[in-house]
Design a protein around this nucleic acid. Sequence first.
DNA 1: TACCAGGTCTGAC
DNA 2: GTCAGACATGGT
Length: 278
Amino acid sequence: MKEIIFSSEFFNATDTLECGQIFRFEKKQEGYLVISRDKACLVKTVGESTIITCNESDEGYFTNYFDLNTNYANIYNLALNSKFEVLKKSCQLGKGVRILRQDSQEMLYSFLISQNNNIPRIKSIIGKLCEKLGDKKTFLNYEYYAFPTFEKLVCQNEDFYKQLGFGYRAEYMRYLSSELKNGLMNELKNCNANQVKARLLKIKGIGEKVANCACLFGFYKTDSFPVDTWIEKIYREDFNGQLTNPKKITQYFESTFKENSGYFQQYLFYYKRTLQGK
DNA sequence: TACCAGGTCTGAC
DNA sequence: GTCAGACATGGT
């Protein structure tokens, strides 16, 4: 077993996990059990340290996953010195937030499920999906299930997904799975944010918001700024925004925050959602 | 009961 | 190009 010890100043386990970017984690007595693909680790923040416990062979994977080689002090200071009061407050509340480098396919499926849905229910649906189709694994004394491969997902019919509570999103699973089967990931290699987004928008069930979330959380395009109902709220109330078209709101933020769009979006999202109840 | 959740699609203008 | 209404489900 390997322990990765990191300063908690810009890496707080709760901030990073509870800010809505990841749906696969459980609070345990020893910390958070975090699951990605078929791997798991334990994360906890104690005083000035955040400690990741994982298998020796996964050290590289989780170092990258938690984005440990990016300097968040720079990002934080830019937010703190911005002209927007709400961003200053947001980054102070969410100082310990990091943008996770999650698995692209897992994020595509997860945010496909997320549409017009709430976070507890998204977590529950994804959990059931993994339990049904993912390989059973063990880490320390915990049992968990890997995220299913698209090869397994593409074989299921709509009724299967409906029984798990997917609702009208059940048919979207089929479109995404068949795109993956036909080599979508290969097409998206070496693409920039706009190219990834444009390609994803051709898939039925993926719109502006899901495409942006996939770009940011699954392809680590930090110049993406997803706009959901919470961000629309903050745009109206705290940025005195007049635009009503979410696509234009995205463009406004992306041209304002540029390569830091994704980080600032998470600060803002976490802030608004924390203040107004989950 | 009505409304909402990390929205998207369709069809009408 | 914009906009209203439909769409499954469970929580409040």
